[in-house]
Design a protein around this nucleic acid. Structure first.
Lengths: 203, 203
DNA sequence: AATTTCACATACCTTGAGTATGTTATATTC
DNA sequence: GAATATAACATACTCAAGGTATGTGAAATT
């Protein structure tokens, strides 16, 4: 019960954390490949080389694992966005490099299917919004607000503008993989985003 | 076997069509209220006052009913859009009244949940795109193409522009119901759509 | 050294989708 | 118009998958 001040990570904790990570990784792959519904807990567990018992020890239920997978994907994406845009000094540049990085992340099959398409359905809009408000969406909105503060952007509801921008990016991430000319589609998508923002730019 | 030229709707066909419609209506309500996964076939059938036997006589499986429900919702929405916009002579006016009607239709809980959120996940992107290409999306794109033909709109990929517009409208239909000030949100949403289109309007 | 606890494994239960078969009213055939 | 066929269901069963209850052994604590 009493933890001595010198207590450290025990061997058991280390092992447990490793299997938890294995289940998370296995879940990410299986959900991405087969979708939430078709992904069986048995299959996810086998791919992580454990049994169902281990699964239910680490996660409340199937939805809990999915939730954790979504959070980890969002966290990864946000980190990538943050990394590429933080060094830019001009805000507009920060915004656009961030958007590009966000698009790169969204295009990946696992993200597009799990986060963009299935997460709102499986977790519900309320919970999804909760997760979204941290991570990528937060960065996007923060940059938009910064632009507004500087008088660069003229629009009331920055929150809404952020969501609409997000919607365009997400739709693009769904359409891009099956596009006949992905390169061109991406360029045109970028143009649409620029057009959208441009119409609220200070004249 | 041989249908006489004077053959007419038989009583049986009439009854069968009625129960099919009852199942379709029951499915629409149940899917809208509980979502695809949670909606049981037993419950759907009971609400239509038939048994599972009747259900499986009329529909291949659960997905087939869902597919039919999506098609009927899309068809209804398209009819509403068509109805409100067809009388307008100016193309821009036709576009904007159409968008408003589309938004009105999308806001309804059944449409927002079933068509916008769940359909791509349950039916898959390919099948969903197939359905979408008829109905509302077709009307939207047709009007955009008309504008391009008239030289009113300057953009290469009208198909993409249509999808991006659709994405904005759909996102709006998801966010509107939980908005703290729906009226204002809708006005601001409209402004964003106008901004988007305006940036590709002939100057 | 004894005991507890954590990290799993195994066996079972339950629910719901799908199937196979039975039944009856309606339509067709002779 | 009586016999037969068939469509439109109802009933009973199967099976897979999520979740639960319980068992077990190694590691940590006392």
């Amino acid at each position: 019960m009493n933890k001595a001040p010198d207590d450290q990570r025990t061997r058991r904790e280390e092992y447990a954390e490793a299997t938890r990570q294995a289940l998370l990784a296995s879940g990410r792959e299986t959900f991405a490949r087969e979708g939430y519904q078709a992904a069986g807990i048995e299959a996810i567990s086998r791919a992580a080389r454990v049994t169902r018992g281990a699964f239910y020890h680490h996660f409340e239920d199937k939805k809990a694992l999915f939730d954790a997978v979504v959070v980890s994907l969002q966290s990864d994406a946000a980190a990538r966005v943050q990394e590429t845009s933080k060094r830019k000094s001009k805000i507009w540049e920060r915004l656009y490099t961030g958007i590009d990085a966000y698009l790169d992340a969204s295009i990946e099959p696992a993200y597009a299917r799990i986060v963009v398409q299935e997460a709102p359905v499986v977790l519900g809009n309320a919970r999804f919004a909760e997760i979204e408000e941290q991570y990528p969406m937060a960065l996007l909105k923060a940059t938009l607000r910064a632009l507004k503060r500087e008088g660069e952007l003229v629009f009331d509801d920055i929150d809404l503008l952020g969501h609409m921008l997000d919607a365009v990016i997400c739709e693009l991430s769904i359409k891009l993989p099956t596009s006949s000319d992905p390169k061109k589609t991406r360029i045109n998508g970028r143009k649409i985003i620029e057009g959208l923002l441009d119409s609220f730019r200070r004249k």
